[in-house]
């Protein structure tokens, strides 16, 4: 009986240690998505008909991360067809942008190669819309 309890406790300890070691690397990115993107693109990224594009079918995440970084930072002018505009996110710093882009690429294109803050900064300096 004593042996059984000891084995049970060992297993419980192993399970709790392995669970606590699993950290979500996209946690901040997901939180930033909820704060900055979710109200338009929806919780599941499905968008709204032709008015707000779905992130699920977007090819943008499979292209180079530069496009995505510039798009998030500077937004999009009013679309003449839909009348919708994507607002700029000037308040996001380089770390937040990297985390958001990494979350989006992993979530919607299963790309796990992370973008670094250095890459974000280099990209921001070359955005077409940079003022």
């Amino acid at each position: 009986m004593y042996l059984f309890i000891r084995r049970f406790l060992y297993i419980a300890l192993l399970v709790s240690v392995s669970t606590s070691c699993q950290t979500n690397p996209y946690r901040q990115g997901h939180e930033l998505y909820k704060i900055n993107c979710e109200s338009c693109h929806m919780e599941d990224g499905s968008g709204l008909a032709k008015l707000i594009p779905s992130l699920k079918s977007s090819g943008l995440f499979r292209s180079t991360p530069e496009c995505l970084i510039c798009l998030i930072r500077h937004g999009l002018d009013k679309n003449q067809l839909t009348g919708q505009q994507m607002p700029a996110n000037k308040r996001l710093n380089d770390v937040e942008l990297a985390n958001l882009v990494n979350y989006l690429r992993q979530e919607y294109a299963s790309i796990t190669i992370a973008v670094t803050t250095e890459e974000v900064n280099a990209c921001l300096a070359n955005c077409k819309d940079e003022e």
Binding site: S39, M42, I52
Partner: peptide, 13 residues
């Protein structure tokens, strides 16, 4: 309203 950046898209959905 159409340019609403907060709750409207969710409500319209």
């Amino acid at each position: 309203f159409i340019s609403c950046p907060s709750i409207c898209p969710k409500v319209q959905k």
